[in-house]
């Protein structure tokens, strides 16, 4: 179990909550930055998940940049072949779904797919390895799977949310955007006695459509967070079983490998779908 020098044996509750605790640094009211006393404070950085997230993003960029620099249409190296499979896969997914022309969507999809995959993949590293290593270096908490941090998944889905709004306004104009929020699903009457009812219908539409709009980033991020958090929690529970954890661990890792890939794919695919909905007029 997690090494926490001097504290003696941990109860299972302590073990679990220790694993779920972020390494945090926050700015308190006095203006100082303090470590790990940040409950309820917005000005907090989850150093571990943020750090791993950036690290994995850099892994993605450096790996792909190395291939992209030497990319040629001749005989590919093995790594180039792998990268090209991923790029080709993302490209065909985007072309199947998004029919407009955009220089952003495909690179966005690629970044999301690979980055989320790498973040999820951290879940397959045995749950105690990195926290124990960090503990031996004097770092009290270390959460290594960025996608089990709701801030990380929300951070990404909010970026996608703003892109949805940007694309809607870009392709349909501000009036189109407002119209989409207010004139669906019930078209308000434009003449006659029904005109009295129009404001109520518009208000009703607005409530319905804003919920639908806001549900997009929320569901996008919570889906990923929920899957990964549950998977991580099960890994932690399995890790408490002593010697019996070995077969169970491999079994769950096998299932989780599917979840890891699937969730990365779903995040990418839904992003593309949302953005293509935003760019197409019905």
């Amino acid at each position: 179990m997690a090494a926490e020098g001097g504290h003696g044996p941990l109860t299972s509750g302590e073990y679990i909550s220790h694993h779920l605790q972020n390494l945090q640094v926050c700015k308190v009211e006095t203006g100082e930055w303090v470590w790990n006393q940040c409950a309820g404070n917005f000005w907090t950085i989850n150093v571990d998940t943020m750090g791993w997230s950036i690290f994995l993003g850099l892994v993605f960029v450096i790996l792909f940049r190395g291939v992209a620099k030497k990319a040629s249409s001749g005989k590919p190296t093995k790594l180039q072949a792998l990268v090209e499979i991923i790029v080709g896969f993302v490209d065909s997914s985007v072309k199947d779904t998004f029919h407009g022309k955009s220089r952003l969507i495909a690179p966005l999809g690629l970044t999301i797919f690979v980055w989320v995959f790498l973040m999820n993949f951290m879940d397959l590293i045995p749950v105690d390895w990195i926290p124990m290593l960090a503990g031996s270096l004097g770092i009290p908490y270390m959460k290594v799977v960025p996608s089990t941090d709701v801030n990380i998944t929300f951070g990404m889905s909010i970026a996608v949310f703003f892109l949805i709004i940007f694309y809607t306004i870009k392709n349909k104009g501000v009036t189109g955007f407002i119209g989409e929020l207010t004139l669906h699903p019930i078209a308000p009457p434009t003449k006659g006695v029904g005109l009295i009812a129009a404001p109520f219908i518009i208000a009703f539409n607005f409530i319905l459509e804003s919920v639908a709009l806001i549900a997009k980033p929320v569901s996008l991020s919570l889906r990923l967070f929920g899957n990964m958090f549950a998977g991580e929690l099960i890994f932690i529970l399995i890790a408490m079983l002593g010697i019996y954890q070995l077969p169970l661990h491999f079994l769950w890792a096998g299932f989780h490998l599917l979840i890891v890939t699937l969730q990365a794919f779903i995040f990418m695919m839904l992003t593309i779908v949302y953005l293509s909905l935003a760019s197409e007029s019905h």
Binding site: C26, N41, I158
Partner: peptide, 8 residues
């Protein structure tokens, strides 16, 4: 929810 969200 904290600053990490904006960072991400």
């Amino acid at each position: 929810i904290n600053l990490t969200l904006i960072g991400q």
